[in-house]
Amino acid sequence: MMALLRRDLTLAVRAGGGFGLGLSFFLIVVVLVPFGVGPETALLGRIAPGILWVAALLACLLSLDRIFSLDFEDGSLDLLATSPLPLEGVVASKAVAHWLATGLPLVIAAPVFALLMSLPQEGYGPIVLSLLLGTPALSVIGAFGAALTVGIKRGGLLLSLLVLPLYVPTLIFGAEVARRGVEGQGYGPPLLMLAGISFAALALLPFASAAVLRVNLR
């Protein structure tokens, strides 16, 4: 499984698409929002947690269909399914690779984007923390959606339609952590819920994803 993780990361680095694309998209959203709502610092600061979270979610969504479809098209997925690796492990390591290539860069870059959105000082810790705990859930849930649509040509739009409703709880708790942080309230409960969703998704969803992949491969 480490080999698979290593390969996926190498592919993400060599083919671009992974690290660069998600971050650039994140940047563009953050640049566009002030054009839409006006440059007023107070307003931007107030909506910053939500915007950062929605932007992270969309940046994540952008690269989801690559998780399995490339491997499906070139036959690697068939070969992986016949390999000694359990398919659940394949799904999990691919989701982790997706997170390392898309989610983690967003987490690391979040303070810079928060600066652009004039997020108040108190919000920096919570936004980074919430993205750190929440983006793994986005990758794992996204991998489930990608597994569902892997056999469908041009399934990107369908993938979004399937995955976005599943993202609702993660988004709500994630943005809530950041918002409460900005307002100086305690953000323990939503943070725990967020972590719970991430870990539960990581532990359970690969089984559903692997089952769905098997159906799609036969």
Partner: peptide, 20 residues
Amino acid sequence: IDGIKSTLTVEENLNFWADV
């Protein structure tokens, strides 16, 4: 279809499957 990744070298492709 062979499950070959075009951005990996021949050696890397084989090494990956050997690892798996």
